[in-house]
């Protein structure tokens, strides 16, 4: 579905992302994790067309889309959400979702109906006619996903949709992401929280200091020494091993 190779980006003296390669098979939930500042969001922004990569290929369904604009990539069927939620604050929740639906239908009543259906499916029913600015954090995260989903994507890029949520809300959103995948949408997600990813992802890539350091199923990743060190600091794996 999505194949990234050799993706690099330098900001002045900082090599933010170095030679990242990852593969997202169709129908999977793939996760990109890593400590703060690892370059996850930059990688994401390059895949979605918000930052132009210095080099590398982003191949969606056999077409190299690296360097295309975000709207062209959305049109091609891949849509991102934002870690810091970006609602159209002055518009209602329904109008927010409808903008996504307008990508596939120019007809206002058809787009409204599609948006309403997505909103109901994601549990935003009671808030559809409220201003988006009035939503809670969890509600805004849902709205991000609902808007993206309304564009009828084949591939969804979720940027830390669980950050800032309480455990109950995380459970709800995990179930929601599973349901989205079961509905036929391939998912690539960024997460900081490893536990949430373990429950959800088929495959995990770990990014640290701009480069991939590990790749595999979540169970193996959780015990990978390099990953533990990246999160907890040098020597942490040995110390944990000594205690065990």
């Amino acid at each position: 579905m999505l194949e990234v190779s050799g993706l690099s980006k330098r900001f002045g003296g900082l090599q933010a992302v170095r030679d990242v390669a990852l593969k997202v098979p169709p129908g999977s939930i793939t996760a990109l994790i890593g400590p703060n500042g690892a370059g996850k969001t930059t990688t994401f922004a390059m895949i979605a067309g918000f930052i132009r990569p210095d080099s590398g290929r982003v191949v969606l369904d056999g077409h190299d889309i690296a360097g295309r604009r975000p709207d062209q990539i959305a049109e091609a069927g891949m849509v991102r959400t934002f870690q810091i939620t970006q609602p159209f604050a002055g518009l209602t929740v329904l109008e927010n979702i409808r903008l996504g639906a307008f990508l596939r239908s120019a007809d206002t009543s058809a787009a409204t109906a599609a948006a309403r259906a997505v909103g109901l499916r994601l549990g935003l029913g009671p808030f559809l006619d409220r201003p988006a600015a009035a939503l809670t954090v969890a509600g805004r995260k849902r709205l991000e996903v609902a808007r993206a989903l309304a564009t009828a994507p084949r591939m969804l890029l979720l940027d830390e949709v669980m950050a800032g949520l309480n455990p109950t809300e995380i459970q709800e959103i995990v179930a929601m992401i599973r349901a989205i995948r079961d509905g036929g949408v391939t998912v690539l997600l960024i997460e900081h929280i490893m536990q949430a990813v373990a429950a959800l992802a088929d495959d995990v890539y770990v990014l640290a200091e701009g480069a991939l350091i590990a790749h595999g199923p979540p169970r193996a990743i959780a015990h990978d020494d390099r990953v533990i060190e990246a999160y907890l600091g040098r020597g942490a794996a040995a110390k944990l091993g000594a205690h065990a």
């Binding site: 918000f50 159209f88 518009l91 109008e95 409808r98 996504g100 307008f102 564009t151």
Partner: peptide, 26 residues
Amino acid sequence: KRARFGARLAALRENEDAAAALGVNL
């Protein structure tokens, strides 16, 4: 106020990045 074009205008007025992510050619 009713049409897609107006909805896109309102969206980019509120938030350009989000509008672009949802397929609006700014």
